[in-house]
Nucleic acid binder design. Structure first.
Length: 373
DNA sequence: AAGCCGTGGTT
DNA sequence: TAACCAAGGCT
């Protein structure tokens, strides 16, 4: 269902809305490192990192990444492991693979020249409609609306547009709205201002309507229903996962890691040897084990032996880490272990100095399990 | 087009 | 604690 205010009202108000938004943005904009850059490469990297990831998390990663890979050629020439290592902890490592693949394609097929059109960007792996519009407007001055979750929230509230904005029909309506609002002379500023408004003022919960430059024009605020928008569909129930992992040292104080097999989550990254001990929907009557126990230790030992040919005796519990992912709730128990047979070797296994983890392509959980403890 | 990706932060 | 959210894209 889509109910909204008459759209004819909006184009007339567009110039005033534009002016108020841009004036607010000029005053309130955060000093983010990529906002000091105008080259498409720096903007591109920031936009890929910012997909489903908060600004606060991205900033240090972006700085390190641009020091390691200052331009598209250095990124294209880098080993995938180095790129994944720089990404480790940021999540959704597929973004890093696609960024690396896109850099290679730019160097190999375009002589290292970055695209200068929306279609050119859109054709690269990892660049969808939002990211293409963001790069296009910010780095190239193209007048294309960049519509992310923030912008969806602002626009559904401004116009009381009902329905889930992630659905195609609603998204099209919002895009049409944004197109009628965008400042064609300063599209990059406009897009960033709209996203900034969503990130700083028009918050999902407890928005700061009194300080909003659009507050007097907002239909949802006028009717006192701001927090009823956007009308997102309820999320699916989460999946509960319990996992066991072992910390096994060799004689030189190095810890055993294994390469995640293709087809598994986090494939290609390094993780502590382990296995899934429980996997189920959390809306079912929970059978998920609630605490570490000898039965789980035996199961972990047997499955490491049968699945990975790693033969150990399980020692004491070292720590428990909870990991909340979109619709996964993961609990990992890390135990000590002693090898009782020769440890496998080969490409899937490696021993690393636990003091030298930075730069390794670790999974997020492994990074947390190994840090300071 | 609907589900998946199994991240980190806030409330 | 657990739900919800974030500068989404891919299949």
């Amino acid at each position: 269902m889509i109910d909204s205010v008459p759209e004819s009202a909006l184009p007339a108000a567009a110039p005033a809305l534009r002016q108020r938004l841009l004036a607010w943005y000029e005053r309130e904009r955060r000093d983010l490192p990529w906002r000091r850059r105008s080259d498409a490469y720096a903007i591109w990297v920031s936009e890929i990192m910012l997909q489903q990831t908060t600004v606060q998390t991205v900033v240090p990663y972006w700085r390190r990444f641009l020091e390691l890979f200052p331009n598209v050629r250095s990124l294209a020439n880098a080993d995938l492991d180095a790129v994944l290592g720089a990404w480790s902890g940021l999540g959704y490592s597929r973004r890093a693979r696609m960024l690396h693949a896109a850099a290679k394609r730019i160097v190999n097929e375009r002589g290292g020249r970055l695209p200068q059109t929306l279609e050119g960007w859109r054709a690269l792996p990892g660049v969808g409609s939002y990211t293409a519009a963001a790069i296009g407007s910010i780095a190239l001055g193209l007048p294309s609306p960049a519509i992310d979750g923030n912008v969806q929230r602002v626009l559904t509230r401004l116009t009381k547009t009902g329905g889930d904005p992630r659905r195609t029909a609603v998204a099209r309506r919002l895009e049409s709205l944004a197109r009628s609002l965008i400042d064609e002379d300063r599209p990059g500023e406009f897009n960033q201002a709209l996203m900034e408004l969503g990130a700083m003022v028009c918050l999902p919960r407890r928005p700061s309507c009194p300080s909003c430059p659009w507050g007097t024009s907002c239909a949802a605020r006028r009717d006192g229903v701001v927090e009823d928008y956007p009308q997102l569909a309820p999320a699916r129930p989460a999946v509960t996962v319990v996992r066991g992992a072992v910390r096994l040292f060799n004689g030189r104080g190095r810890v055993l890691l294994t390469r995640v097999a293709p087809g598994e989550p986090n494939q290609g990254l390094l993780e502590l040897p382990g296995t899934v001990l429980y996997h189920g929907r959390s809306d079912h009557p929970a059978h998920a084990p609630r605490r570490w126990c000898p039965e789980l230790a035996l199961q972990l030992r047997d499955r490491l032996a049968s699945e990975k040919r790693l033969f150990v005796e399980i020692g004491s519990l070292l720590r428990r880490v909870r990991h909340g992912i979109t619709h996964h709730r993961i609990t990992v128990y890390l135990t000590q272990a002693e090898a009782v047979a020769r440890v496998p070797s080969g490409k899937a296994w490696c021993w690393v100095d636990p003091r030298r983890l930075s730069g390794l392509p670790l999974t997020g959980v492994t990074r947390r399990l190994l840090e300071s403890g």
